[in-house]
Design a protein around this nucleic acid. Structure first.
Lengths: 191, 191
DNA sequence: CGTCTATTTGAATGTACTCAAAAGCGGTGG
DNA sequence: CCACCGCTTTTGAGTACATTCAAATAGACG
């Protein structure tokens, strides 16, 4: 059963009865996506929170000059959405696309609200999910402020070895906030 | 009663019975701090989550070269701690100091755990607190990646007008990830 | 009033970017 | 199966944004 992984993800933090489990399953939808599929488009309503079962997704912001900044990568066992817009019903600021053929599970905002209301245990699950996301982003801000591009690149390689295997250098560069050309020179062994 | 503000902060998101309210009050401690007081020192155990009733606090990271990066400011009605270390019982990475005479309420990690266990309603409260913190940090990462120092400064002035009144330019510079000298040139009207 | 720190100003420097072009690689169709 | 196309990566020259260092000025606080 393909649901196994998402349930294991949840049961890392909270335990569910069979009834709660099947209720949760009833609220999510599986989707199989080909490479380069657009999961969310900036400007649209961000209706879904997605759990990645297999494959890889990327969220990115496109600024007024057309420059893309990668906000996050999501590989197997990660959750991804434009969280601010999902929770606040604002038009999406980001795009989300698949980087390879992927399988995801989605929960709509309506179902998310219903889930939290009917099974308050999920408040704990999402509290932990949000706090992990928060501390991860805060560490990223800290690194961005205190480290050079080269240090941030080395740190990325160490922190996310699995992601490195699934994304291009251009995408890593846009995550680090540098140009692909400059990343290329960083990678070149120094004499 | 000085407790009023923190209770109002909580009741924005969840409602509490009188019993729950007094239980919560029994878990927190008020502290009055003079200017430049060190609330948390890097390397120490981060035992407290603090709510700012009055005044202003700042968390910052000091890197190997002694350069300070401001992670966040917390003025009245904000919560602040080294969240990663508070939750994961790791030695603090950041320092937290008062920027002026301040009054704060603190909840210890032990009491925090007990609060969540005994009054699960607080899971919702902290889920919302964490999700707001998460989306705020993510927006900050997005801005850092896609905007110039000048745009980030302008955006800071607009987003946090109250904070601007309570902190120095040097501190704003270290929040934006630029030198005070450079911030000074940005502020200088262009001919 | 004096001291300490913040802010401003300017010159020299460095990190990272832009633009351009070549080389490499992966996927697709004939 | 290989040739071609498009995109990624590399390389290099010139440039711009932001830093460092130094010194002068302004402000805050006891």
């Amino acid at each position: 059963m393909i649901n196994e992984e998402i349930l294991r993800n949840i049961k890392k933090h909270i335990s569910l009865t069979e009834k709660e489990t099947s209720f949760f399953i009833s609220l999510i939808t599986a989707k199989s996506l080909s490479k380069k599929a657009l999961v969310l488009e900036a400007g649209q309503d961000c209706r879904y929170l997605s759990y990645v079962a297999t494959g890889a997704l990327r969220s990115y912001y496109t600024d007024k000059d057309g420059k893309e900044s990668t906000i996050m990568f999501a590989i197997a066992d990660w959750w991804i959405t434009d969280m601010y817009c999902y929770l606040n019903k604002k038009p999406a600021m980001m795009n989300i696309e698949t980087l390879e053929q992927s399988t995801i599970f989605q929960i709509s905002r309506t179902n998310f609200d219903e889930l939290l209301e009917k099974v308050p245990k999920f408040e704990k699950f999402f509290r932990i999910l949000m706090q992990n996301a928060y501390t991860r982003e805060q560490l990223r801000v800290m690194e961005n402020l205190s480290s050079t591009a080269e240090e941030r690149y080395q740190s990325f390689l160490i922190k996310y070895p699995q992601i490195v295997k699934q994304v291009t250098q251009k995408q890593i560069a846009s995550y680090l906030g540098i140009t692909p050309e400059f990343l290329s020179t960083l990678r070149k062994p120094k004499v």
